[in-house]
Simulated scan of single mutants.
Amino acid sequence: TFVWRKNVERNIDKLKRQLAVLLSQVDDAIAQDNAIKTESIEITPAIICEITSRLKEELSKEAPQAKEAKKALREKKKQIKEIEKKAVSLADYEQKKETLGKRNSFSKTDPDATFMRMKEDAMNNGQTKPGYNLQIGTENQFILNYALFPNPTDTLTYIPFMCSFAARYGHLASTEVADSGYGSEENYRFMEENGIEAYVKYNMFHKEQRMHYAPSPFHQDSFFYNAEQDYYVCPMGQHMERIGTKLDKTANGYQTESVRYRAQNCEGCPLRGSCFKAKGNRVIEVNHRLKEYKRKASERLTSEDGIKHRGRRCIEPEAVFGQMKADYGYKRFRHFGKDKVEMDFAFFAIAFNLKKMCRKLKKAV
Score class of each variant (00 low, 15 high):
Lys6His: 12
Asn7Phe: 06
Asn7Gly: 06
Asn7Glu: 09
Val8Ser: 01
Glu9Met: 06
Asn11Ser: 11
Asp13Arg: 15
Asp13Lys: 15
Gln18Met: 13
Leu19Tyr: 08
Ala20Met: 07
Val26Lys: 05
Asp27Asn: 15
Ala29Gln: 12
Ile30Ser: 03
Ile30Asn: 01
Gln32Pro: 01
Gln32Arg: 08
Gln32Leu: 10
Asp33Cys: 00
Ala35Glu: 09
Ala35Ile: 14
Ile36His: 01
Ile43Tyr: 04
Pro45Arg: 04
Ala46Val: 09
Ile47Lys: 15
Ile48His: 02
Ile48Lys: 00
Glu50Ser: 12
Ser53Asn: 13
Arg54Phe: 02
Glu57Cys: 07
Glu57Met: 04
Glu57Trp: 07
Glu57Asp: 12
Glu58Ser: 03
Ser60Tyr: 06
Glu62Gly: 01
Pro64Arg: 00
Pro64Glu: 00
Gln65Ala: 03
Ala66Val: 03
Glu68Arg: 13
Ala69Thr: 00
Ala69Asn: 02
Lys70Leu: 02
Ala72Leu: 07
Leu73Met: 12
Glu75Leu: 03
Lys77Val: 01
Lys78Pro: 00
Lys78Gly: 12
Lys78Trp: 02
Ile80Val: 12
Ile83Ala: 01
Glu84Ser: 04
Lys85Gln: 09
Ala87Gln: 06
Ala87Trp: 05
Val88Gly: 03
Leu90Trp: 08
Ala91Ser: 15
Ala91Glu: 14
Asp92Ser: 09
Lys96Ala: 06
Lys97Leu: 15
Glu98Phe: 03
Gly101Ala: 07
Arg103Pro: 00
Asn104Cys: 03
Phe106Ala: 03
Ser107Tyr: 08
Asp110Asn: 06
Asp110Cys: 07
Asp110Trp: 10
Ala113Phe: 13
Thr114Met: 00
Phe115Gly: 01
Phe115Ile: 11
Phe115Thr: 07
Arg117Asn: 10
Met118Gln: 13
Met118Leu: 15
Glu120Val: 14
Ala122Phe: 05
Gly126Glu: 07
Gln127Asn: 06
Tyr132Ile: 11
Asn133Leu: 04
Asn133Tyr: 12
Ile136Glu: 03
Ile136Val: 15
Ile136Leu: 04
Gly137Met: 09
Gly137Gln: 05
Thr138Cys: 12
Glu139Val: 14
Asn140Cys: 04
Asn140His: 11
Gln141His: 09
Leu144Thr: 13
Leu144Gly: 04
Asn145Tyr: 11
Tyr146Lys: 14
Tyr146Cys: 04
